[in-house]
């Protein structure tokens, strides 16, 4: 099958549980082949239920969904052949080693015998578990379990990969390593990735496009940049090292945007065009020989988007919505 059919098409998808509310309430979305689609929402928004329907673990109550061109309701067995999934709870047997898990998973997928060992070892190495491969999984850290779970989802070379909150509870290093692998899968192997998360930073950094779900409905959809630009342009705050340069600094900044309230000792503007102007600002201060104690870029966050669309903040927002970029002499840019 061609890569063109590796996408996901969802129309009016509904899942209603007995005596409960609609967990998913008529969502429409399209994920392009090879794209990383971030499905962002708070706990209980309907993210996992959507994933369960798209991975054939749960039949939809209404609507339709096609994964890799196959209908999840009527072609479940075919769908399962072309998808991989690492669900919220890494379902691992604590009594099996990583290598034994690979043996199990490759056999479950019906890989030819001669390929199983090779494929298992290759994936164990790729996720950096070679040294722990013969240890029982019961003794693994959360990060190791997640990496193994991801490797298991890849044994049959899926064309579409579902990751349900893959980094929840992981330390920053494990999270970064998982992000690298997901990006590589999409960029190099052309795997379509459907990733649910409640971390703004994760959706922002990884996803080509983001769908924001709240109370079972899609509240917003688009590229992270487009969603944020709907809300507003980024702002910049600078603090001149010498307070005597404040007036000249303000003049420079005024060329790039309109003044906005800033933190104490800082000068702030809302950029006219956007983040591309940052280079120009740095150059302008350099040409004017004005040293800066700090330069901070404040972008609208996806939390701002969520707030604008739903009237509420996303749970956990703020813990991952800001990353610091070091400047050469110890200053920082918050992006």
């Amino acid at each position: 099958m061609s890569q063109e059919s590796n996408g996901i098409e969802v129309k009016g998808l509904v899942r209603e549980f007995k005596n409960g509310p609609r967990a998913v309430d008529g969502i429409d979305l399209t994920v392009e082949p090879g794209e990383i689609y971030g499905f962002l929402g708070p706990n209980g928004a309907g993210k996992s239920t959507t994933v369960h329907m798209l991975t054939t673990l749960l039949p939809p109550t209404a609507g339709s969904a096609k994964v890799a061109g196959l209908d999840v309701a009527t072609e479940g067995s075919k769908v399962r052949k072309v998808i991989g999934a690492a669900l919220q709870e890494a379902a691992l047997d604590p009594h099996l080693t990583a290598r034994e898990h690979m043996k199990l998973q490759t056999s479950l997928h019906g890989l030819p015998k001669e390929e199983r060992l090779k494929r298992g070892d290759e994936l164990i190495e790729r996720v950096g578990l070679s040294e722990a491969a013969d240890r029982r999984v019961g003794g693994y850290s959360g990060g190791m379990k997640r990496r193994l779970d991801l490797a298991l989802a890849l044994v049959h070379r899926p064309r579409v990969l579902f990751l349900d909150e893959p980094t929840t509870g992981l330390d920053p290093q494990s999270r970064a390593s998982l992000w690298t692998e997901v990006t590589r899968l999409s960029a190099e192997d052309g795997v379509t990735v459907f990733l649910t998360t409640q971390y703004l930073e994760e959706a922002d950094q990884l996803a080509n496009r983001v769908g924001i779900i709240d109370a079972g409905r899609i509240a917003a959809e688009g590229t992270p940049a487009a969603l944020k630009s709907e809300i507003g342009r980024p702002s910049v705050e600078v603090v001149p090292r010498d307070p005597a340069n404040r007036a000249r600094s303000q003049e420079i900044l005024d060329q790039f945007g309109t003044a906005v309230p800033a933190a104490r000792d800082a000068l702030g503007i809302r950029l006219n065009e956007g983040i591309d102007e940052l280079v120009g600002i740095v150059r302008a201060f350099d040409s004017a020989n004005i040293e800066l104690a700090s330069l901070v870029l404040n972008e609208p966050t996806l939390d701002d988007v969520f707030l604008a669309k739903t009237g509420r903040h996303l749970e956990g927002a703020g813990e991952a919505d800001s990353a610091e970029m070091p400047l050469p002499d110890g200053e920082t840019v918050n992006a």
Binding site: T55, T56, L57, S77, K78, R80, K81, A85, L87, E89, A90, A91, L92, D93, Q105, L108, H109, G110, L152
Partner: peptide
């Protein structure tokens, strides 16, 4: 209970 059932349901084409 442990989640392995779900793993098997996902990985086997014919359940």
């Amino acid at each position: 209970e442990q989640g392995m059932g779900r793993r098997m349901m996902l990985a086997t084409s014919n359940r």
